[in-house]
Amino acid sequence: MDNVLLKTINTTKEFGQEIKSPVLFGINLEIQAGEFVSMIGSSGSGKSTLLNILGALDRPTTGEVIIDGTNLGHLSDDQLAYFRNRTIGFIFQSHFLLPQFTVLENVLIPYLIYAGKAPTEIKARALDLLDRVGLIHRKDNRANAISGGEQQRVAIARSLINHPRIILADEPTGNLDSKNTQKVFEMLKSINRDYQTTFIMVTHDHALAASCDRLLKLKDGLIIEDLDLLKQPLPKEEDRCAPSILE
C-alpha cells in the first residue's frame, strides 16, 4: 500500500519581493501512486499555487518536493522542463491547444518537443488516446475548428501521450457544461483506473470532489482536511460533513 509517488516537506510559498505575501504555509503531503486526489478550497486559498509547485512549474520558497524519487530542488530549469515533459501531464481550465496544428499533432506535441518526429507506434498511441476521448474522427481538424468540450478532451489526450506518472488538473471542467463535465470526469477516472495514473484535480465542483479517492481541502495556505474517501465515503446527499468540508 505504501507506494509514495509525491511528497512535500514543509513546503511554503510567498510572492513578492519587497512586500512579501505568503500564500502557502508548510504543506506536508504524501500522495500514493495511482491515487485520484481532489483538491478544494475557496478562491485564493492557494490551490493553483500548490498545484504549480507540485507540477514543477514553480519552485517553493522553502521546503522540498520529491516526485518519483527526484528532489525537484536539485534540478536546473532545463532539467525541470525535461522532468515535466517525461513525468507530468497537465490539464488546465483552458485547453491551450496550439491552433496552428491539427488535433492529432496537438496530442503528439509533448512527444515531439524532444523527439522531433513521431514513430508509428507513438502515432498509434495518439490515435488510441483520441479514440478514448471519442475524437478520432476529428484527428485532422485544426485544433481551433472543434468545440470547447472537444478541445478539452484533446488536451486530456495530449497530457497522456508521454505516459506521465502523474496528471495535474486545475479546474479541468471549469469551462464546461454539466454534461461535458461528467463526460470529462468519467474519462479521467477511466484513465486512472486503466493506467494507474495518479491524479490531483483542483475543482469547485463538490459532486466531483466527493467522487474521488481522496479529498484535500485548503484554507489560507494550509491543508485543513485530508479525507480518505475510499475508507470513509462522504454521504452523497444532504450530509452533515459536506457543508463544512465543501463550504
Binding site: G55, L57, D77, D78, A81, Y82, F83, R84, N85, R86, F90, F92, S94, F96, L98, P99, Q100, I109, P110, I113, Y114, R158
Partner: peptide, 16 residues
C-alpha cells in the same frame, strides 16, 4: 504567448 506558455509547461526549454 499562450501557446508558448503551454509549450513551456509541457517541457519545452527556453532556448528552444
Amino acid at each position: 504567448s499562450k501557446q508558448i506558455g503551454i509549450l513551456k509547461a509541457m517541457g519545452i526549454r527556453t532556448n528552444s
